[in-house]
Design a protein around this nucleic acid. Structure first.
Length: 670
DNA sequence: AGGGAATGCGTTTTT
DNA sequence: CGCATTCCCT
């Protein structure tokens, strides 16, 4: 018992000791949230709550894994014998599990497959094409997100149509309806459906009562990121004992664009009267300069709760705000700073570079490769999204869900079987195929039918292996003139190996779809490159937050729309990024950005940095000589600001420029 | 049907 | 630049 409370501060301790009734934990950045949660779970188990009666929900697989690991470790120090973990996972993962068990109550086939964003896009594309919807490029791009947005608010196609005002919205409503119809026919659920069907399942009384009886304690992490559906699920799941504990921080709400509503956390006390409210405000992660700077940034937001995040870690180096010439220099600055620290004994794994958009990783990747700085890129394309892997997945999907048209279209002509677009149309129209196409289709169907008989008796690895074998898929990949053929072959082999981790095909496919690119991990010590969104919940000794330019961060869309709440969300994102740093934080921006077309554009420093600068400094920095370039050695920073109230922020810029043309400056990385 | 060249366009963030 | 889509030729 003592061990469970060991090393906790009074607030954390109260959160761990108070086990019954609703509880709201407002946990500031770095305030020991995960520690508190894991200790609370351990305490519940110590109080004889059976682990399987505890439901713990997180937002990312990574967070779920961490909570599992840490809870497991803690439990192992407390008890002997086999340790059993609570029911832990992401909303989507838990939904999948529950729907596989009880989905039939809402008309789901047991063998449903899951569409990822890519599958959804293909189906939509097909619908738009065959039904002749006319959409502009940008509309075409937005349809998927708009439908997803509607689903996340529990708005059906009919309801969407009823409230549609523009011609575009009416089209979306129609596409939405057809999409739902075909998706159902294909035996698939998309990400949003996992939540929607879970909610519907909880409308079935017997099922709802079953789960309300089962889960005696519910814990929800990152509650500020719950959307409407998730909120409704939680409301339905909580039983009369009201043992619901939610943890979150409205300052770190960064998923409104995905339907998250941080009002959910602000309304908690209203929704669950008499809730115990605990505020964790002591930060154990970052130094004072970092926290002060982050606080200065977030204070600009009007729409937020008030709180005081503080730390005992006082003496430390100031935050550096650095303005350089262009993206290449920005990378150069980061690379040199890291190299210098590594020379002093730091390891690469202690550094992270955080940016707004995945695309911004490019200059860093190029330079790091050149300078042989080990790095791991997190995000962007997932392993399972590589074309060669997706093709194999399409086949496996077809074994489980023969009626899925999306996978069918994807797989039928890989490798080339003479079944092109025309033949496919004929086939779907029920016509007989002749010649090469007929032969090819026959082989294809034969193979599927044959492998399907083996699902019950063979492991996923055996099935995937046999599939690849019989397709002569690896040979097919090698015959192309693709210089990446070797990598593709390796990917397919790795994929087959991966299947060995599962003992049933449905589970394997389900987990593939829910796997995020940010879940891929690299063991070695390397600099981490990722988006600020992906960085939530993580921490490093030294963090570089890069690309603090108007139009990049805040993003172009937000700047153009001028939407105040979107702007505040971006500012919260910067707050999240800054508070990832333990000892040292660098924030960089660049004067000029090179576009795709080769044009070089002047970029203003992000408005978010204003509170970090003295008022009159802006002019100084805005009027530097842009025809000068940064000389890569040494990094020279001059402190402009010696009149600040504290020494938490050091404004740096480089005044060691030498003349050079834009072409030369960009030549290295273009 | 399918390869290859030409074109054109891109900028959020993710379970 | 790099990718995705389209067009044109075999």
């Amino acid at each position: 018992m003592d061990k469970i409370l060991e090393g906790l501060n009074p607030e954390q301790r109260r959160a761990v000791e108070t086990l019954s009734g609703p509880m709201l934990i407002l946990a500031g950045a770095g305030s020991g949230k995960t520690k508190t949660l894991t200790h609370r779970v351990a305490n519940l188990i110590a109080h004889r709550v059976e682990p399987w009666r505890i439901l713990a929900v997180t937002f990312t697989n990574k967070a779920a894994r961490e909570m599992k690991d840490r809870t497991l470790r803690l439990l192992e120090t407390l008890q002997t014998g086999k340790v059993q973990l609570p029911y832990m996972g992401t909303f989507h993962g838990i939904a999948l599990h529950i729907l596989r068990m009880d989905g039939e109550a809402v008309g789901l086939n047991k063998n449903f497959i899951i569409y990822d964003a890519d599958d959804r896009r293909l189906l939509l594309k097909n619908i738009i094409k065959t039904n002749g919807f006319e959409l502009s490029k940008s509309q075409y791009r937005d349809v998927g997100d708009d439908i997803s947005g509607a689903k996340n608010q529990n708005i059906s196609a009919d309801e969407y149509l009823a409230q549609a005002t523009t011609a575009y919205e009416q089209k979306v409503a129609q596409i939405y309806r057809i999409y739902e119809q075909e998706r159902r026919q294909n035996g698939a659920l998309d990400f949003d459906d996992l939540l929607l069907y879970w909610l519907r399942l909880l409308d079935v009384e017997e099922v709802r009562e079953k789960y309300r009886r089962l889960f005696k304690h519910i814990l929800i992490d990152e509650y500020q990121d719950t959307n409407k559906i998730q909120y409704q699920i939680v409301r339905k799941l909580v039983n009369d004992e009201r043992n619901i504990c939610v943890v979150g921080d409205d300052w770190q709400s960064i998923y409104a664009w995905r339907g998250a509503d941080y009002q959910n956390i602000l309304n908690f006390e209203h929704d669950f009267k008499g809730a115990t409210v605990i505020k964790l405000e002591q930060n154990y992660r970052s130094t004072k300069p970092i926290l002060d700077a982050a606080n200065k940034v977030i204070k600009e937001n009007i729409n937020r709760t008030d709180k005081t995040i503080w730390t005992e870690s006082l003496n430390a180096t100031p935050v550096e705000v650095v303005r350089v010439y262009n993206q290449f220099e920005e990378a150069e600055f980061v690379a040199q700073t890291i190299a210098r620290e590594v020379a002093k004994g730091a390891s690469y794994g202690e550094f992270a570079i955080l940016y707004r958009m995945n695309m911004q990783s490019l200059p860093f990747e190029k330079l790091f490769t050149q300078k042989q700085i080990p790095y791991k890129l997190v995000g962007g394309q997932r392993f399972y999204d590589r074309a060669e892997v997706k093709d194999v997945i399409a086949y496996l999907n077809l074994l489980v869900a023969p009626q899925d048209k999306v996978s069918f279209m994807r797989a039928v002509n890989v490798p080339t079987r003479g079944v092109g677009e025309r033949s496919l149309e004929k086939y779907f129209a029920g016509e007989q195929l002749s010649g090469k196409a007929g032969q090819g289709m026959h082989e294809f169907l034969e193979l599927l039918a044959d492998l399907r008989t083996k699902i019950a008796t063979s492991s996923p690895k055996e099935i995937a292996g046999e599939l690849v074998e019989r397709l002569h898929y690896l040979d097919y990949l090698k015959t192309g003139k693709d210089e990446r053929a070797d990598a593709r072959v390796a990917n397919v082999k790795a994929f087959v190996e991966e299947a060995g981790e599962y003992d049933n095909l449905e589970d394997f496919l389900g987990s593939l779809a829910l796997f995020a690119s940010s879940d891929e991990s690299v063991g070695m010590s390397a600099v981490t490159l990722m988006t600020m969104h992906a960085a939530k919940g993580l921490e490093w000794d030294e963090v570089f937050v890069v690309g603090l330019n108007e139009g990049t961060f805040p993003s172009k869309r937000v700047v153009m729309s001028g939407n105040e709440s979107d702007l505040e969300e971006e500012r919260r994102l910067l707050y999240v990024a800054m508070t990832r740093a333990r000892h040292k934080l660098y924030i960089t921006s660049h004067e000029k950005t090179k576009g795709f077309d080769g044009s070089v554009q002047r970029t203003e420093e992000s408005r978010f940095l204003r509170p970090l600068r003295q008022d009159d400094d802006l002019d100084d920095l805005g009027t530097q000589d842009f025809e000068q370039t940064w000389t890569p050695q040494p990094v020279k920073c001059s402190e402009i600001d010696d009149s600040m109230s504290s020494d938490e922020v050091q404004i740096c810029y480089d005044d060691d420029y030498s003349a050079s043309s834009d072409d030369e400056i960009f030549a290295d990385w273009a």
